[in-house]
Simulated assay, not measured.
Amino acid sequence: MTSIKTMVTDLISADALDLILYPTEQCNFRCTYCYEDFSIGRMTEDVQLAVKRLISQQARNVKLLTLAWFGGEPMVARDIMLDVARHAAACASQSGTKLKGIVTTNGYFLTPKIMADFVALGHDHFQVSLDGFGEDHDNTRKLISGGGTFARIWRNLLDLRSTDLQFKVTLRLHLTRTNLASIELLLSKLAEASFRSDKRFVVLFKIVNQLADAPAADTAVLSRSEAPAVLEQMRALASGLDLDVAEPDQIKVCYASRPNSVAIRATGKLQKCTVMLNDSANDVGELMPDGTLRLEPKKMLPWMEGILTEDPSSLACPAGAISKARVASKHRTIPIEVV
C-alpha cells in the first residue's frame, strides 16, 4: 500500500503539469443538482492564445502534460478543444513530452466521429455521467429545453462499443436514495449489451452531493451513514455481472491538492477547485497574455495544506479543510495581554 509520504513526494514532482481547461462554461444540460450558474460563456480568443503559449513553454519543461477538459459541457465548444489539442499534440511531438487528454462530458455529443478526432490527438480518457436507465436518468439530467438525454447518450455508447477505437470511458454512475433500482437495471443492461467484455469501459460509482445553493427537491441525497453500504452493494453487483469496476483509491488525493495542477477558467482566471467557482479563496491567480501563470503564493498555500502536513483529510478535499478553517476562525479567541 502506498504511504502518504510516498504519495506526497510524487505530488510535488516537477516532471508533470496538469491543466484543467474550461473551453466554455455553458452547458446544453440543466441537471437538477448542478452547482454552476452558467454566467460565463466561451473561452475568449485572447485566453485561447495564452493557453497555447503556456503549452508551448511547458511542453519543453515537463515529461507529462495533461489537459483535462471541464465546463459547463466542454464539447459545446469542441472547436476550441480540438484547436488547442492540435497545438498541444504538435508541441508534445516536437519536445518528446507525453500528452494525456481527459474529457469530463455529459456524453451527448460523444459520437464515434468526434471520439476519433480526439483519440488522434492523444485525448483518449473520457468520463460520462449516468443517473439511471431511461426516464430515471432523464428526471435529473435534462436538456435546457427540459427534454430527455438518456436515449442519445446510450446510442452514443453503443456506437462507441462497436468501433475499434482505443479509448477509456469511465461511466460515472450517480447514486441517490431514489435511483438505486434504476442503477441496478442500468448495470444489467450494460452487461446484456456486451460492455462487460469490453475493457475500454469501466464503471465508477459516486454518491450525489447537493452542492447547489438552492437544493433540488427531487434529489434525495444519501446520508453519510447510508453511503458506504450502498457503494459496497453496487460494486458487488457490478462485479458479479463481470463489469469492470473502478476501485476506490486507498489514499484519496484531490487534484486541487496537487501543486502542479491548476484550472484555467474561460476568462483566464486561475483556480484550484472546480466546485468553489464563486469563492474568492479559490481565485489563486491569472493566466497572462504571454502564457505565464501569475500565481498568488498566499492564496495557493491553503490548497497545499495536505502536502505540508500529510493530513489525509486535507489531501482528499482541501476545499473542505479551507471551509472548516474559515468557520473556526470566526469563533477563535485571541489572547490579549493586559498591561
Rank of each mutant, 00 (worst) to 15 (best):
E305K: 11
L287S: 08
A68R: 09
F133T: 01
R294D: 13
A328G: 05
T9S: 11
T219M: 14
V338N: 06
W69T: 05
N106P: 03
D79W: 07
I207V: 15
R258K: 10
M300P: 00
D15G: 09
I307G: 00
E192G: 03
Q58S: 10
D138N: 11
Y22F: 14
L237V: 03
S39A: 15
W303L: 04
M1C: 11
T333D: 13
D131V: 00
P112I: 03
F38P: 02
V51E: 00
R141L: 02
F195D: 00
D15M: 07
G285W: 12
E135G: 11
A263W: 01
T176N: 13
I322T: 05
R86N: 15
I12Q: 13
G134M: 00
V51T: 05
S145P: 06
M75H: 10
F133S: 01
L180S: 09
N278M: 10
F133H: 06
V221T: 14
P259N: 05
T2F: 06
L186A: 01
A14E: 13
S194Y: 02
S280I: 14
K168F: 12
D279M: 14
L315G: 03
H87P: 11
K324V: 12
S239C: 06
I307A: 01
H331W: 11
D117G: 11
M75V: 08
K98N: 12
D37Q: 14
G96H: 08
G240D: 00
L301C: 03
A120G: 11
Q250S: 14
R196K: 06
V230T: 08
N28P: 00
A266F: 08
L204R: 10
M304G: 00
C31K: 03
K272W: 03
K299D: 04
A256T: 05
K299S: 02
Y108S: 10
M234C: 04
E247A: 15
F109M: 10
K330H: 13
L237T: 02
G122N: 02
I336R: 13
G72W: 06
R42D: 15
Y33P: 03
R42T: 04
T292F: 04
R172C: 14
D83F: 11
I334Y: 11
R155Q: 06
D311F: 01
S223T: 15
T24H: 08
N209R: 14
Q250L: 14
V203N: 00
A68C: 12
C27A: 02
M288N: 13
A181V: 06
I40L: 13
S162Y: 04
S93Y: 08
S323D: 09
H137Q: 06
T104S: 15
F205A: 01
L64P: 07
R42C: 02
S3K: 01
R196N: 04
V51H: 01
T140C: 05
P112A: 03
R224N: 15
A89N: 11
T105Q: 06
H123L: 08
A217G: 12
E135K: 13
L82Y: 08
L173E: 11
G291L: 09
A319T: 04
S39W: 01
R161A: 05
H123N: 07
A246G: 08
A77Q: 10
L185S: 03
N156D: 02
A90I: 11
R53A: 10
S39F: 05
